[in-house]
Design a protein around this nucleic acid. Structure first.
Length: 638
RNA sequence: GCCACCCUAGCUCAGCUGGUAGAGCAACUGAUUCGUAAUCAGUAGGUCGUCGGUUCAAGUCCGAUGGGUGGCUCCA
């Protein structure tokens, strides 16, 4: 048998016989290492511990401390769950796929007769624990495609058969533990006994291969960790995240509500929520004016014929609301671009006056499928901080960069981390190659200039142009698209937008659709979770509340309240005959930044004693000083 | 839209295998005037999402429908 050279991470080289496994090598180092190891990395490829090595190369053992460990454990745990399900429900259920995902794993099952319910979880978990306790060896075997197809067909696993047939490989690898066999690339942990900390978390429907025309599978979500302590910590984190759910906080802080008689996905903004909106809208108007945008306002409904001309009727009709009066059809706007185009078209344009930047806090309505509605994050009526930049082709680059800076500035003010994606030309698209190339280049160069990492979604652009998407995360780490910049070649064409160039001829401008926060509703939803409801002073719907200790200071407290209110501070006063501790608690629960306590001392000295919501008491200050403080903080977006 | 689950007082929740509803908080009333996260006592409040069915009898079982939750598909 030929020798091979195995280089270990510490640089040492072991001379071993071909066919030696990573497990053997681990054992030669120490028994503890061999016992702990879960898998191995050989020349940048993850392999099983029991995989014979027949070439020289670099080997690293994957132990629980390795970054890859969790993913391998979760993937293996998905097999354990499938094994348990097969043992419990046997031929009633077919297995499909079961990958590791962020924070856990899932497995999709198909069954005509068995419907999983949450009550099955403890039963499945118990079976998993039983199989883990048996510490069955997990073995890999390789067979030809035909043999594998025959095997799974015999077992009645038609989904596996389909997978193997579509794989197009001559040989496939299977993993076996006990009586359970699954098609899988691996690698897997060596024994089922590795699984000590797992929990089934939820049930969901999922289409086979993600296609809604396919069968609906039953997906069981679960999670697994290296040990029980990590699992417990993870479950506690989830619990914490649920506390900052914007739907819960929205009710508790009395910001907004929904009403089923009004309709799903239609937000009712209560006074405090509407205040928050107003603050953000005022901020938006100011920031847009600063950056050379013009504010415009379009109508809520436009004639159906116009939506036909724009292509929305053809491509977006099922998402639109229509109405008819006096035999004239109208469409309620799902986007703001049409009115902006008409404004542009209202008079001849010169190349000298481009770009035009039309900004509108435009309220749109889209009929979203009922199952996708989600608090403020996915609604049917929302207001976008929408703008359309109509420019010469040579101006795209500078305009896109300007928008990117705008996005970064705003993200910085709110303290958001975000991820960015560039989506390029899809198969079905319109516009010339040159247009696409120029626009994509402009977007890419703006992204590169931003200095932030970004991902590329090849072929994921809109049919009318490439786009940049910026995504923010909610409390549960789900990503929500907020800002987006899209190049559009279609609408200027369809609406015959032109400008007169230096040559006296008519030319076609380019249009950029862009939003900075996206939908105000969604943004506020994410914002609530981001701040866990404790908004910074400049955003707080109520910035301060005046609290008197006893009735004795009621008149002075009222006077302070009026003084603050007329100075522009968003302030409330609580003169109820309650103990101070009670009033503080209520203000605290309402997450009001400053409580201004007034007792006899403050009344005598004509001051207020501020208490911040973190519990810290500040030195008593005069009302004027407090007003100045609020103004300074607000100006600094604190 | 699809799959599963949920829907009891304003909120959070109890209500066993069917025998026409209960708590805490909030609200209201009264007493208490008390300096940094809950003073005490009392009162009121629900045709158990809606419609239909089974049953002598349904919050509890069945069906439909509305809304919601977690996903899938789609998307700001």
């Amino acid at each position: 048998m030929a020798d091979v050279q195995i280089e270990l991470p510490d640089g040492s080289v072991k001379q071993v016989h071909s066919g030696t496994t990573p497990h053997d090598i681990a054992l030669s180092i120490s028994e503890g290492l061999a016992r702990q190891s879960l898998a191995a990395r050989f020349n940048d490829q993850l392999i099983d511990l029991t995989r014979p090595l027949d070439t020289s190369g670099k080997l690293a053992l994957i132990t629980p401390n390795s970054p890859e460990a969790l993913e391998i454990i979760r993937h293996s745990c998905a097999h354990l769950m499938a094994q348990a399900v097969k043992e419990l429900y046997g031929d009633e259920v077919q297995v499909t796929i079961g990958p590791a995902i962020k924070d856990g794993f899932y497995y999709d099952f198909y069954s005509e007769s068995k419907t999983f319910v949450p009550e099955d979880f403890p039963v499945i978990e118990a079976k998993m624990a039983e199989l883990a306790k048996q510490d069955q060896p997990v073995t890999r075997e390789v067979m030809t495609r035909h043999a594998a197809v025959d095997l799974f067909r015999e077992m009645g696993e038609t989904y596996k058969v389909e997978l193997i047939e579509d794989l197009g490989e001559e040989t496939v690898s299977l993993y076996r533990q006990g009586d359970f066999v699954d098609l899988c690339r691996g690698p897997h942990v060596p024994r089922t006994g590795v699984h000590k900390a797992f929990k089934l978390t939820s049930l969901a429907g999922a289409y086979w291969r993600g296609d809604e025309h396919n069968a609906m599978l039953q997906r069981i979500y679960a999670t697994a960790f290296l040990n029980k302590k990590d699992l417990k910590a993870h479950l506690e984190r989830l619990e914490e995240a649920r506390k900052r759910d914007h739907r819960k906080l929205g009710r508790e802080l009395d910001l907004f509500s929904f009403n089923e008689e009004a309709g799903g996905g239609l937000v009712l903004w209560h006074p405090k929520g509407a205040m928050l909106r107003t603050i953000i809208e005022d901020f938006e108007r100011k920031e847009h004016l600063k950056r050379g945008y013009d504010i415009v306002v379009g109508p809520q409904i436009l004639k159906t014929d116009l939506w036909k001309m724009s292509g929305h009727y053809e491509n977006y009709r099922e998402n639109m609301y229509f109405t008819e009066v006096d035999e004239q059809g109208y469409g309620i706007k799902p986007m703001n671009c049409l009115a902006h185009m008409l404004i542009y078209k209202s008079k001849p344009r010169s190349y000298r006056n481009l770009p035009v930047r039309y900004f509108e806090l435009g309220t749109v309505h889209r009929h979203e499928k009922s199952g996708v509605l989600h608090g403020l994050l996915r609604v049917r009526g929302f207001t976008q901080d929408d703008a359309h930049i109509i420019c010469r082709p040579d101006q795209i680059d500078a305009e896109v960069k300007g928008v990117m800076r705008f996005v970064q500035d705003v993200a910085g003010i709110f303290g958001f981390d975000y991820t960015m994606e560039l989506s390029t030309r899809p198969d079905k698209s319109i516009g010339s190659d040159a247009d696409w190339e120029q626009a994509t280049k402009a977007l890419r160069s703006a992204l590169e200039d931003s200095g932030q990492p970004f991902e590329i979604n090849e072929g994921d652009g809109a049919f009318y142009g490439p786009k940049i998407d910026v995504k923010l995360k909610d409390a549960l780490d789900r990503e929500w698209q907020c800002a987006t910049i899209q190049c559009d070649f279609t609408l200027p064409e369809r609406f015959d937008l032109t400008y007169v160039g230096a040559d006296g001829e008519k030319h076609r401008p380019v249009m950029l659709h862009r939003v900075i926060v996206g939908s105000i509703e969604r943004f506020i939803g994410v914002l609530i979770e981001h701040y866990a409801g404790s908004f910074p002073l400049w955003l707080s719907p109520v910035q301060a509340i005046v609290l008197n200790v006893t009735d004795n200071q009621a008149d002075y407290a009222q006077e302070v309240y009026e003084q603050l209110r007329s100075a522009g501070v968003r302030v409330e006063v609580d003169l109820r005959n309650e103990k101070l501790g009670f009033k503080i608690r209520e203000a605290q629960v309402a997450k009001i930044p400053y409580m201004l306590v007034i007792g006899d001392r403050e009344m005598e000295q004509r001051t207020v004693a501020p208490r911040f919501r973190d519990g810290k008491n500040l030195e008593p200050v005069s009302v004027d000083d407090f007003v100045a403080f609020v103004a300074a903080e607000t100006a600094a977006f604190k």
